[in-house]
Write a protein that binds this DNA or RNA. Structure first.
Lengths: 189, 189
DNA sequence: AGCCGAATTTGATTTATATCAAAAGTTTTG
DNA sequence: CAAAACTTTTGATATAAATCAAATTCGGCT
């Protein structure tokens, strides 16, 4: 199974030599958890990057006691507690599985080591980060100046089946509106 | 001058070998332009990355005929028309100098070539993108759920002197509010 | 220096969305 | 399979910020 996943990932991002893949494989953990499992808890240091093989996860943080959803990941997507992982600060973000999932877990230090050792892995890392960066860029554009209705339809275009996996409140939070507003938007079309 | 700039950049992001630096230098253009110069015009393909040595620039796009500011860059920061540069699509974004500036210009294809050839340059590229990604991440957080007032003070914390360089309307647009609202916020403290 | 156009402020009004509250549906689970 | 515990919907009201409009201030230019 791992070989198959790696094939898929490298096809999407960039090709790796067999040597690099072999070294990489030594450090990959394949894990299976139930819905609701917390992969990262708030205020903990985290050095893990996750890849959702099957299932889904969300990252969120708390503001004034309310849950704010930061990120979703579905099949074949990466997720991490972004400030915790990249800035090596205690994480403001939690990561929680939103369905029973099979995931891959990578350790930052191992990935850094691989990036230092293998040029192709460094490129691979850059591609992954570039994709995350572009996703964030898109979100900024629609968060900056669009109505609740536009945000919702933009999200649906990106993730047409999101409502099958994620509760309404989390979706609303992700696009920066309340769940009541989202419910009303949905009601009228 | 170029040597000094390169020293500064590599210190901030990651160290490069002399060989890499030499090859890189062959492809760097140092340019000087007046305030108001458009580095990237809308709907054009763009393959340039810019570095502001002295001065400032903004990226913006139009929505319903209104200018929406996407990005600012000041001394020692990078800027590009992000979707145009990374996705190789015609750019939705324009880049305009907001002051008389001295800038460096890099070409995507040359940078790609350097990244392919030199492992250290690949790492350097990754670091630059990572920084952009983290900036975007911060913006998402405050655009998602905060008041006009919070956004303004967050921005001031990041760029304390921004008001000396950038007109109020552009600042307001960057944080997703109207300039009238920003003016009122400023009036009351 | 003083004029003109641009940028900013101030005022009145409207509007989208938040908030608070309660009812109706859905899952989960013992 | 019923009770409990969430989730979603619906309703009434409040509010932050947008919009529209005009007045004022600022800053570059001859």
């Amino acid at each position: 199974m791992l070989n198959e996943i790696i094939k898929k990932i490298t096809e999407e991002y960039s090709v790796l030599s067999n040597e690099t893949i072999d070294k990489w494989k030594e450090n990959i953990k394949v894990l299976e958890f139930k819905k609701g499992t917390q992969l990262v808890k708030e205020e903990k240091f985290t050095n893990k990057l996750y890849f959702i093989y099957k299932g889904s996860a969300k990252a969120y943080h708390l503001k004034d006691g309310k849950i704010i959803t930061d990120w979703f990941a579905f099949n074949n997507e990466f997720i991490c507690a972004i400030t915790g992982y990249f800035l090596k600060e205690p994480s403001e973000h939690c990561i929680e599985l939103t369905e029973n999932s099979i995931i891959l877990e990578f350790e930052r230090e191992k990935l850094t080591e691989l990036s230092n050792k293998f040029h192709d892995f460094e490129r691979f890392s850059r591609k992954i980060i570039t994709k995350i960066m572009l996703q964030l860029q898109k979100r900024v554009v629609y968060l900056q100046f669009s109505t609740a209705n536009e945000r919702y339809h933009f999200l649906l275009k990106e993730y047409p089946k999101i409502e099958l996996h994620i509760p309404l409140g989390d979706i609303a939070s992700y696009i920066g509106i309340t769940q009541e507003t989202l419910s009303r938007i949905r009601a009228k079309k």
